[in-house]
Simulated scan of single mutants.
Amino acid sequence: MRLLHPAGRLLHLSYCTNVHPAENLEGIVGQLDEYALPIRERLGSDVLGLGLWLAAPVAAALAIDAEARKGFRRELDVRGLEVVTLNGFPYRSFQNPVVKQAVYHPDWTTPERLRYTLDLARVLADLLPDDAARGSVSTLPLAWRHPWDDARAATSMQMLDLLAAGLADIETRTGRIIQVAFEPEPGCVIETTAQAVAMLSGVDTDRLGVCLDLAHLACAWEQPADALRALREAGISVMKVQLSAAMEAGEPEALREYVEPRFLHQTRNPAGGSVDDLDEAFETELPGPWRVHYHVPLHSRPSAPLVTTTPLLRAAIGELVGGPDAVCDHFDVETYTWGVLPPEQRPQNAGQLADGIAAEMAFAHDELLKGMNA
């Protein structure tokens, strides 16, 4: 979906396809028909944006096959779908029964992560709509915090230098600008805005920047205005925004039904208390209130006394698009947890999942409009 900022800048709104399990090209094309096309039709939109997730083997195959990229672009075009951003955080197997900390591997100390990200950039250069100003690839915030030392930090900076050089080469060869956005996340080397500033200030900031995930920002108990000010003052661009909401509980006992085995649900309180998963928060009796890294549907409200961090999402949108120009033009709805929600909230079939994603997209579209016109 597209929106025009009052300043004249085109904003792109998409939904992230890492909610779907397909990890081969045939399966990905199939999920366009099963989910993306019905979502576009439910929204009554001429064009639907996808924050496409391609597992590493698919990205590698497409990166070396120009005809396959052209064919995939045609599959998108005939369905009224477009791609300006890719989610390059999960390497593969993101909807396995158990993911947890595996999602942080390979990390930015490895050539595998560099190769995967440049493969994605090469693919995206051919998928971009002709009128898109640029493309973005979001990625993990360097690595999980353990193990991490000076040697690993130095290696990661070398990888980022190679990444920037590779992106420059892609721009030279294709004429398309592709930028890579590092996504601060609880428990990682880059968890907070201050850590993003510290770790990214020395990189090529024309090509490398931040993906601001609003659920992660909430779990760090940061305020959007403060975070954006710190990034701006450091000269680090917000190259992508993930529109997401986390769970919040003043009475943590109500969160027990959200404990599940697939994803990591880092839990934080405003006093700086932190644990790496929701079950650990119960075991250690972490004092409340809690915010939990559990992406929940943007448009719905959980049962009391639970709430979500949607108010922070609205505040962030106001900061991002409410000024004389937009801070960022790529907005991706990333609720990948539909399949692990408590049973009574979980979609039971493809049609119900399409309904839910379409409702989220409509909510996000309306909130962006409100933010621009406030």
Rank of each mutant, 00 (worst) to 15 (best):
T110D: 14
D366H: 11
A281W: 08
Q348G: 15
T193E: 11
Q345P: 00
N87S: 09
R173G: 07
S201V: 12
L353Q: 02
L160K: 08
E75D: 08
E319R: 08
L54M: 10
C16D: 02
C328T: 02
G235I: 00
R207V: 12
E41D: 15
D325M: 08
F89T: 14
N24S: 14
T117Q: 00
M239P: 11
V307K: 08
E26N: 07
V84N: 01
V189N: 07
F72A: 03
L4M: 07
H295W: 03
Y104L: 11
P270N: 00
L54K: 13
I178E: 12
A132K: 05
R134V: 00
A153H: 11
L341I: 02
L278Y: 07
L4S: 09
R346M: 06
F282P: 02
P252H: 07
R122L: 12
E334V: 04
L313G: 01
L127G: 00
P6M: 12
Y104E: 10
A102I: 10
R152G: 14
A304P: 11
T205I: 04
L140E: 00
A68N: 04
P342Y: 10
R74T: 10
V321T: 09
T192C: 14
F182Q: 10
L32S: 02
R256N: 11
M157S: 14
S138P: 04
G288L: 05
I28Y: 01
W144D: 13
L11N: 00
L25T: 02
L228S: 01
S237N: 15
H299S: 13
D65E: 15
V103F: 02
G371C: 14
C211Q: 08
R42I: 09
V189S: 07
D65H: 11
S237Q: 14
S138L: 03
A254T: 04
P57K: 14
Q95G: 06
Y336K: 08
P224H: 00
A230K: 03
G8P: 06
A215K: 02
A350K: 13
A121I: 12
W148N: 02
T335L: 07
R145E: 11
F89Q: 10
D325Q: 15
A63Q: 10
S300C: 10
A68R: 15
G356F: 11
T139F: 05
L118G: 03
D329E: 13
L286M: 10
E248Q: 14
R176A: 15
C328H: 04
V47H: 10
E112S: 05
L313C: 04
T335M: 09
E285D: 08
A249V: 06
L298F: 03
D206M: 06
E23C: 03
Y15L: 02
A350N: 15
E280V: 14
E260H: 14
A59Y: 05
I177A: 15
H105T: 15
